Amino acid sequence: MKFSIIGLFCVVFFCSWEREAQKKTASHSVSLNNLSEFNPTTSNWKLARAVRFSPSTDENSFEPGKGIVLNLPAKPDTGHLFTKMHHGDIEVEFDFTIAKKSNSGVYFQGRYEVQIYDSWGVKTPAFYDCGGIYQRWDKNRTSKNGFEGKAPAQNASKAPGEWQHFKIVFRAPRFDKNGEKTENARFVKVLLNGVVIHENVEVTGPTRSAAFEDERPLGPLMFQGDHGPVAIRHIRYTLL
Rank of each mutant, 00 (worst) to 15 (best):
K123W: 06
A210E: 06
T124N: 15
H234D: 12
H80Q: 13
M222N: 12
S43H: 09
R171L: 11
D214R: 00
G161Y: 04
N34G: 12
V69M: 07
E199I: 03
E59S: 11
N103T: 03
W120H: 07
K177N: 15
G194M: 02
L240A: 11
G219T: 00
G228V: 04
N193R: 04
T124D: 14
N39C: 14
A159K: 09
K189R: 13
P55D: 06
G132S: 05
G110I: 05
R233Q: 09
T204V: 14
L32R: 07
F187T: 00
G205W: 01
P217H: 09
R233Y: 05
V190G: 06
I98S: 08
K2P: 08
F9E: 09
V230T: 07
D95I: 01
G194D: 09
H87F: 14
D226C: 03
P40F: 06
P229I: 00
F94T: 04
V195P: 01
R141I: 00
F187S: 00
H28I: 12
D118C: 03
L218P: 07
H234K: 15
K158T: 10
W163S: 05
F53C: 00
C10F: 11
T78W: 11
P220T: 08
G7C: 08
L35R: 10
E202L: 10
L192Y: 02
P64T: 09
S119R: 01
M222D: 09
F108N: 06
V230C: 10
I6N: 14
P229G: 09
L218I: 14
V11R: 04
N200A: 06
T142K: 10
Q109Y: 08
T204R: 03
N200S: 11
K189M: 12
E162P: 02
G161L: 07
G132P: 08
P64L: 08
C10W: 09
F127R: 06
N193K: 05
V230K: 01
V114M: 06
G205P: 04
E199W: 07
E180S: 15
K144G: 03
N33T: 12
K150P: 04
A156H: 04
Y107N: 03
Y107T: 03
V196E: 15
Q224G: 07
N103I: 03
G146E: 02
D226E: 06
D77P: 01
